[in-house]
Design a protein around this nucleic acid. Structure first.
Length: 301
DNA sequence: GGGCCCGCAGGG
DNA sequence: CCCTGCGGGCCC
């Protein structure tokens, strides 16, 4: 059964499942025991929040979820540090980097927080891995924690239509890597496209335009993030044209902007250049200030 | 109802 | 093949 990112057809948000076996059969969450379904290469497609780790925090629309590993098989106690390269943890990191939606299932458990179901398991829809980081957990060992934020319906794009394959065709299937159906977190493409066009796909931080075959590749980066919890607008004043490297740096606070559009290296707090601009592309410094505040005042969310 | 231990599915 | 993992059934 291929890994599916996004909703499972016929299994809407809110549906209840008595047992892990039923979640498996539905394809909503396939491991029978593991809390994370995912790999480093493909990403994590689903998790179960069932109170297995004491550092979990469940606020409904925001879940702080502990990675796996480091526990004694018999006692269930944490006996060593967790590893970010353990498959599930690396999967959630990949989902974060690629903006893949994660199905969140909540399970009933003792000391049930208000968001957990009374019995069994409940599919609670799609979340985005907003950030992650390590800390020393309650039991005294390093754990990895992933902040997941619920996605609004309009933030999910549909998977591309399956190619129609005539049944008479006898040619062997194309060398299949792993078949995955993916619903990505969607962005308003026309706004992003306009910004990319103005800049001719040149990164506004480093000036790089990546040639791919005959085309050029760039990414549209929202300054104030879309959706929860930031609720930034999908408008040209809130979008930058960046290369993938600077996009990751910007989204994770390694670089940010001053109000006069200097690019600031966070580790040194000093400018490393001026943002490249285009006369038609007006950037609203209110969004710039919002982004900067995330990374210069306290912890980001 | 709690402890125990046998699980199976997935990934390497 | 091996191993691990936020179950679950059984027995007290």
């Amino acid at each position: 059964m291929p890994k599916v990112f996004g909703h499972i057809e016929g299994h809407p948000e809110g549906r209840l499942y008595a047992k892990r076996r039923q979640l498996h059969d539905a394809g909503v969450h396939r491991p029978l025991i593991g809390g994370i379904s995912g790999t480093a290469e493909e990403g994590a497609d689903s998790i179960v929040v069932s109170g297995g780790y004491p550092d979990d925090e469940d606020y409904g629309d925001t879940v702080i979820y502990t990675g796996h590993g480091g526990r004694d098989a018999n006692t269930g106690k944490q006996v060593e540090n967790q590893d970010i390269n353990a498959p599930g943890n690396a999967g959630l990191r990949r989902s974060h980097l690629e903006g893949l939606p994660v199905r969140v299932v909540r399970g009933a458990h003792k000391n049930a927080p208000p968001h957990a179901p009374q019995h069994g398991y409940r599919y609670d829809g799609l979340y985005q891995v907003k950030s992650f980081g390590a800390k020393i957990g309650i039991e005294g060992f390093r754990i990895w924690r992933f902040t997941l934020v619920k996605l609004d319906k309009e933030e999910i794009s549909l998977p591309p239509a399956a190619p129609t394959s005539p049944s008479r065709r006898r040619t062997p299937a194309p060398a299949s890597i792993t078949t995955t159906t993916v619903q990505r977190i969607v962005r308003n493409s026309s706004v992003v496209q306009q910004v990319k066009t103005w800049h001719e796909h040149r990164c506004q931080v480093c000036g790089l335009a990546i040639a791919i075959g005959r085309g050029v590749y760039s990414e549209g980066a929202h300054i104030r993030g879309l959706g929860r919890p930031h609720h930034g607008p999908d408008v040209e004043e809130n979008v930058l044209c960046l290369c993938p490297n600077d996009h990751v740096r910007f989204d994770n606070g390694a670089i940010y902007l001053s109000d006069d559009l200097q690019v600031i290296e966070a580790s040194t707090s000093s400018p490393i250049g001026t943002l490249r601009t285009h006369p038609d592309h007006h950037i609203d410094v209110a969004y710039v200030a919002y982004h900067r505040a995330q990374w210069t005042n306290g912890t980001p969310r």
